[in-house]
Design a protein around this nucleic acid. Structure first.
Lengths: 213, 213
DNA sequence: TAGATTGTTAATCGATTAACAATC
DNA sequence: TAGATTGTTAATCGATTAACAATC
């Protein structure tokens, strides 16, 4: 399992994209696939695809390629998607609920088991089958579980104090949807979804094109 | 304005993050800021920050730094955030509506003027003040406007056909929230928000840590 | 065998980082 | 002036791409 470690981020991201194509192909009944074919479909360099795949540790067959089942397994294993990753949703606003209702995450092994909010009108309710607790219950509930992922979707104004509570609850992984900087100890992994970053890439390219023309 | 062109993607993304900090500092009444300070707050290399800022074309003052107003202007101008970017929301599911209700995008110059869906029960309704039209009206409505951004949040199964309609409507920029590959002509800019990519980075790091320990 | 694909090694490219001169 | 910061040039690093041998 040592090769699961240390796959570069760009490769991890592409592997997640390949997986989409591969599961789709499997549903169509395809049994064997070559990195050349994946590269074509994904608009990527074939050597790059081959290197990405090699990071997962699978060995292919020259002239044929890879058994699609084995390749899917190998990628899922590298991404840690074949075991269940238990998650707490922190903040049940519209973005939080959208994430909660997103069925695709089941494929990634992500399973929301509880949600948290400060709004007393929401506490006790269920969204998509997941019960909302008051945020003050977080440390107590988290203490029974390990390897939890905190999915953070609170208002920016309370980001730091919420993160502090998450850290106190001994949760070591935060998937952050809040556009706000906050401090965490070194052993806590944070992965950010910052929509404005992505929008910046788009709008700056639009501006670039206007100048070109 | 020539320097607005060709800023590398990593720099554009960081500039969007700096902007958050800077607007926050401005609200606090700060008037001058150094790249050294930004670097500290952002946990980045100071040279990197200085280079990012240089891409925006602003010139600083040795020993002091930058006037915060000028710096904000310069970054916003580089990202094309100081002019209004008109947008159509295509697909009004929970994710689409969450994006629509996200006030922060106003700072980025993004303005949703219409929404589209196939669901006849939604057509004619308004979400956050934006009217929902039937998707078939897209080409006609788009024909009156230029430089539109299509924000795509439809079910994966109809992604390609919806994109085809967007392309037919002569829209050249797509902000895509749908985890599905689709083909576009070369002159159409696509920027993807793929949550599963980000999740892959997080879960693979969690797996890496487990092995370390 | 011939040919397509894998796997590997080397070359290139671009972004990051280091070093340092210029400036107020 | 002294010192902090900017701006620039060079060195490093890592990812991508190219070339090619190994394999079925």
């Amino acid at each position: 399992m040592a090769q699961e470690n240390n796959i570069p981020d760009p490769s991890v991201k592409r592997l997640a994209r390949y997986l989409h194509l591969l599961t789709h192909m499997k549903e169509q009944g395809v049994e064997i696939v070559s990195s050349t074919y994946i590269a074509q479909e994904m608009n990527e360099d074939p050597t790059k695809v081959r290197k990405d795949i090699q990071f997962t540790g699978i060995v292919g067959k020259p002239k044929t390629g890879f058994f699609i089942d084995d390749l899917i397994d190998s990628i899922e294993s590298s991404l840690n998607w074949n075991s269940t990753n238990l998650a707490y949703l922190i903040g049940t606003g519209s973005l939080g609920k959208a994430v909660l209702g997103y069925k695709n995450f089941e494929r990634c092994g992500l399973k929301f088991i509880d949600a948290f909010d400060t709004d007393k009108l929401k506490v006790g309710k269920k969204f998509f089958g997941v019960e909302v607790h008051h945020i003050s219950k977080l440390p107590q509930l988290a203490s029974n579980l390990s390897n939890l992922i905190a999915v953070l979707a609170v208002p920016a104004s309370v980001a730091q104090q919420t993160v502090d509570l998450i850290v106190e609850s001994d949760i070591k992984a935060i998937w952050n949807f809040v556009p706000k900087n906050f401090k965490v100890p070194e052993d806590v992994i944070v992965e950010n979804i910052l929509l404005s970053q992505s929008l910046a890439v788009l709008t700056s390219k639009i501006a670039g094109n206007k100048i070109d023309n």
